[in-house]
Amino acid sequence: MKKAIRIALPLAAILLVVLAILWQNGAFSRDDPGSPAGTVKLVIRCDRALDAPALKEEIRAILPESGVMGAGEVPLYENDTAFTLLTRFCKKQKLALEYKGATRYGVYVEGIGGLYELDCGSESGWMFSVNGDFVSKSAGDTPVSDGDEILWTYTLDLGKDVGSREP
């Protein structure tokens, strides 16, 4: 009996941790959001990173030379945000998406398709704009409407090089 408990307890703990991680990744959320309420154009660009001398060769090797990592129309469902659209798009395009889910500012995108923040210096990372305007809010708090154009782009200096007026 004691031996059984000694084996079962660590197993249960491991199972709990795995379930928690799965839940955090959204494995249990229902994948049936109803019918689409429109479409949104989504583009992911990394051309600034390609110009950067600080980019490591092995990362440059996996980036597309055109600077466009993905572009296409994404169906828009109810309660969608810029972030949920990005996750759906990345899943469809087979791009690995890494994000921090619970920061003080909401969700924060760290890397898309192998290109991460800080890969090209201390002020580099991913930003996004809706219809050409850069948004300083978290993508998870940014609602999107039918016909919007969302651009995810890699910046080398906190957004100045890609035309963001925000500090």
Binding site: L22, N25, G26, I62, K91, K94, A96, L97, G111
Partner: peptide, 12 residues
Amino acid sequence: HRGVTILFYLGD
């Protein structure tokens, strides 16, 4: 989720 060879998806 670093890396480029995606094996499969667990949730997102």
